[in-house]
Design a protein around this nucleic acid. Structure first.
Length: 472
RNA sequence: CGCGGGGUAGAGCAGCCUGGUAGCUCGUUUGGCUCAUAACCAAAAGGUCGUUGGUUCAAAUCCAACCCCCGCAACCA
C-alpha cells in the first residue's frame, strides 16, 4: 500500500482563523480523501505556528500568559479545521516539547551551513522590529504606526548560507524534482531565486524571548524559519526517528504569499539535513471580498465561522472547492455564496429529492444497488494534477446529466403504461449513475456523498425527512 | 526598459502550448414538463476575442509594437 504524506502550512496564531486559512485545509483534505479512495495510506498534518514577537505582544495586550494565549488560539484553529470537515492524522504545535527538542537537533545538523554575522538595518522601537530599505524609503524614515523615526541598529544574528544550496534548488525546481504548481508561480520564483541572499535565522533573545533557544548559545533564539518550517518533518519524528516511510511529502499545500520561503529556505534546510525535497508545492491564491483585498482596516474581513454557522460545512466546501479555482485568486461575496448555494440545492439537492421520491412511489428497492461505473479517467487526471475545481466541475456535469436523463426518460409516463419492468430498470440505472457520481463527489462533499449512499442503498428508498439543502 | 499574471457575450471564466465553424456557468427571453426544493429540461438572443501591424490558404490561438488592469519586488494565509 502506498504511503502518502500531505502537509499543510501552519497558520500563525496571533488572531482568529479567516477564510484564507480554509483553502489550505480544504485542498489538502480533498486530495487526502481522493487518495484514500484510491487505496493509499495517507497521513495529513496540520498545526499551528506559535512563537514570535507578534504572538507575545498580543498576549500581553490581552493580559494573559503567552502559553495560555496560544493554547486558546490553537484550540480555536483545531475547532475550525474540524468544522470544515477536514480530518488530519497529525497536529503539531511549534510549542510542543517534541518539536522544540527536534528543532534544536536539526539546528545542530545545519551548523556547517550556519555562521554568525552582524545585521544592520532600520529599526522601529515601537514595532520592535526591522524594516526593509524599501519600506524605510516609502515611509520617509518614519514609522507610520508609531510616528517615530526609524533608528539605525545593529545586532548579532545567525545566518543560513543559502548560497550553498541555490544551484541545487534551482535545478530541482527546473526539473520538477520539486514541482511548483501552478507553472506560472514556478517561473515567478525562478526569477526571484536569481538574486537570493543568505537568510537570518536567529534573533538576540533579548529582542525575541518567545521562541526556541539556539542550542549552545543562550543569547540567541531561533527566528521563524527553522522553527516553523521544520514542523513538516518534526511532526513525523525527525531526526529521532526514521521518517523515510512518509517523507518526502507528496504535496505541501501553501498560500502564494509564502511560496518563496517554501521554495527557497525550506529546501535549503532539507538539503542541509540530507533529506529529499517534497514532490510538489501546491500554491493556492488569495480570497478577496467583494473584489477588494481583505484587510482589517477596511473592515471587510469575512469570518469563516459565520459562513459555517449560517450554512454549514458542505455548502462552505462547495463554494471554496468549486468556485475558487484551485491555484488562483478568487472573490467571495455573500451574493455569490447564496447563488452557489442555490446551485447546490437546485442541481443536487433537488435531484436527490425527485429521484428518491420516484423510487418510493414506484417501489424501487435500493438493496443491491451500487455505483455503476466507478472509475473515470478524466476525473482522475484532474485530481492527480491538483486541478480540484476543474475535477469538481466535471463531477457536477455528471449530476446535471442525471437531471437531463430523467427528463428524457420520463419515468412518470412509463408508470402510466404499467410497464413495471421498464420502470424498474430505468430508475435503477439512474440510481446507479447517481451512486457513481456520489463516489466522485466524496472528496469534496463527504457528508453529502454519504447521505446519498444511505438513501439509495436502503432496503426501501425514501426521500430524506428534510431535504439535503433546504431553501429558506 | 525590474519580474509575473491578465484584458474573450451583461457578470464570472475556459479555449491559446499542438492555428481550421467562438465555448461554459450565472443572468435575460421564449417554450416544455409535472417526479421534484416556483425546482428540472429545451431553444433563442447577446461577442469587431484590448489596439495596430506582420506571418499564413486560414489567427482568439504564432510573431512584433503599443494601451489598460492586477499582483510581486525577502520575513502579509
Amino acid at each position: 500500500m502506498t504511503k502518502t504524506y500531505i502537509a499543510t502550512a501552519i497558520p500563525y496564531v496571533n488572531g482568529a482563523p479567516h477564510v484564507g486559512h480554509a483553502m489550505d485545509f480544504l485542498i489538502a483534505d480533498t486530495y487526502r480523501r481522493f487518495l484514500l479512495a484510491q487505496g493509499d495510506e495517507v497521513r495529513l498534518q496540520a498545526g499551528t505556528d506559535e512563537h514570535g514577537n507578534k504572538v507575545f505582544k498580543k498576549a500581553e495586550q490581552e493580559g494573559v500568559p503567552v502559553q495560555q494565549f496560544v493554547d486558546k488560539n490553537a484550540a480555536q484553529f483545531k475547532e475550525f479545521i474540524h468544522r470544515l470537515g477536514v480530518e488530519y492524522t497529525d497536529f503539531i504545535r511549534t510549542t510542543d516539547e517534541d518539536h522544540i527538542r527536534r528543532c534544536q537537533l536539526i539546528w545542530k545538523q545545519l551548523e556547517p551551513y550556519i555562521y554568525k554575522d552582524t545585521y544592520e538595518g532600520w529599526y522601529c522601537e515601537g514595532c520592535e522590529g526591522f524594516v526593509t530599505q524599501t519600506e524605510y524609503d516609502a515611509n520617509n524614515g518614519v514609522c507610520p504606526d508609531h510616528q517615530k523615526p526609524y533608528i539605525k541598529l545593529s545586532e548579532e544574528n545567525y545566518y543560513l548560507r543559502l548560497s550553498d544550496f541555490t544551484d541545487r534548488i534551482k535545478e530541482a525546481i527546473e526539473t520538477d524534482e520539486m514541482r511548483i504548481v501552478p507553472e506560472s508561480r514556478k517561473k515567478e520564483f525562478l526569477n526571484l531565486l536569481a538574486d537570493v541572499a543568505d537568510v537570518s535565522i536567529s534573533r538576540p533573545s533579548k529582542q525575541l524571548s518567545w521562541g526556541i533557544p539556539v542550542p549552545g548559545d543562550d543569547t540567541q533564539v531561533m527566528y521563524v524559519w527553522v522553527d516553523a518550517l521544520a514542523n513538516y518533518i518534526t511532526v513525523l519524528g525527525f531526526p529521532e526517528e526514521d521518517i523515510s516511510d512518509w517523507w518526502p511529502a507528496k504535496v505541501q499545500v501553501i498560500g502564494k504569499d509564502i511560496l518563496r520561503f517554501h521554495a527557497g529556505i525550506w529546501p535549503a534546510i532539507l538539503l542541509g539535513v540530507n533529506l529529499p525535497l517534497p514532490h510538489t508545492l501546491l500554491t493556492h491564491g488569495h480570497i478577496t471580498v467583494d473584489g477588494a483585498k481583505m484587510s482589517k482596516s477596511v473592515g471587510n474581513v469575512i469570518d469563516p465561522i459565520e459562513i459555517l454557522d449560517k450554512h454549514g460545512t458542505e455548502p462552505f466546501r462547495y463554494y471554496f472547492l468549486r468556485h475558487v479555482p484551485t491555484t488562483e485568486d478568487a472573490d467571495f461575496s455573500w451574493e455569490k455564496f447564496e447563488s452557489a448555494y442555490n446551485e447546490l440545492a437546485n442541481d443536487l439537492g433537488n435531484l436527490v429529492q425527485r429521484l428518491s421520491t420516484m423510487c418510493q412511489k414506484y417501489s424501487i428497492a435500493g438493496q443491491g444497488l451500487s455505483a455503476g461505473q466507478t472509475s473515470d479517467n478524466r476525473y482522475e487526471d484532474l485530481m492527480r494534477n491538483f486541478e480540484f475545481s476543474n475535477a469538481f466541475n466535471h463531477v457536477w456535469s455528471k449530476i446535471q446529466d442525471i437531471n437531463k436523463a430523467i427528463d428524457d426518460a420520463k419515468p412518470w409516463e412509463i408508470a402510466k403504461t404499467g410497464d413495471q419492468a421498464k420502470l424498474q430498470s430505468t430508475l435503477s440505472d439512474m440510481v446507479k449513475d447517481l451512486l457513481s457520481a456520489s463516489q466522485l463527489l466524496a472528496p469534496f462533499l463527504p457528508e453529502t456523498s454519504k447521505k446519498i449512499d444511505d438513501i439509495f442503498t436502503a432496503a426501501k428508498i425514501t426521500p430524506p425527512a428534510t431535504s439535503l439543502f433546504p431553501k429558506a
